[in-house]
């Protein structure tokens, strides 16, 4: 049986490039940063703006980058802080409407293997995806961040700890709680 360790293990990442080479950094990590912000906030316009802010901040503060983590983790650390600040500010923006087209469940047919593309299978997968998507939305901010970093961005617990500024044990607790909630909401698929 294929285990979670093999499926979600983050590959070893070497800091071959520096933050001075911002074009290369953008090329490598822009989509990843955008994706994390987009899935966290579910607002495309905000995700684009905060992605811009993230790279700008990383470039401006590159002198403080101590290289005790990868550039990717450093960028995700900035992104996590930006998302947290934005979400807090948005609480009072009750008039704001998010700009979002569709949900991930709608893409299911385009990437499923051919053998699993029957209408019944697609409907079942879509239902599950919508359940996970909805469950993730109800998670408290920290649990959601940890859940997304782990299961969408494939980050290890130590990397998540560095990106969120939490201790590894705290990350684990948030991840446990998030998993319990998501499993309860999704139910056990057959």
């Amino acid at each position: 049986m294929e285990t979670a360790a093999t499926q979600f293990a983050a590959p070893y990442r070497e800091n071959a490039i520096g933050l001075d080479d911002i074009d290369a950094v953008l090329r490598l990590y822009r989509l990843k940063v955008f994706r994390f912000i987009l899935v966290s906030l579910r607002d495309r316009e905000a995700a684009e703006n905060l992605t811009q802010d993230c790279f700008f901040k990383a470039y401006q503060t590159r002198g403080r980058f101590r290289k005790d983590c990868s550039i990717e983790t450093w960028l995700m650390h900035i992104a996590v802080n930006l998302v947290r600040d934005y979400a807090r500010n948005r609480r009072i923006q009750f008039w704001r409407r998010t700009s979002l087209a569709g949900s991930p469940a709608e893409t299911i047919e385009s990437w499923l293997p051919d053998g699993q593309r029957s209408p019944e299978m697609c409907a079942q997968f879509k239902q599950q995806m919508e359940a996970v998507w909805a469950a993730a939305a109800t998670l408290p901010e920290r649990q959601r961040t940890v859940f997304l970093l782990r299961f969408v961005e494939d980050m290890e617990l130590l990397e998540i700890a560095a990106a969120t500024g939490m201790k590894e044990g705290t990350v684990k607790v948030h991840l446990f709680r998030a998993l319990r909630t998501v499993r309860e909401r999704v139910g056990t698929p057959t």
Binding site: R35, V39, P104, A105, T107, I108, S110, W111, L112, F125, Q128, M129, V132, W133, F151, V152, D154
Partner: peptide
């Protein structure tokens, strides 16, 4: 599947 659909 969640990861795949979110990435797509």
């Amino acid at each position: 599947q969640f990861r795949g659909s979110v990435r797509e």
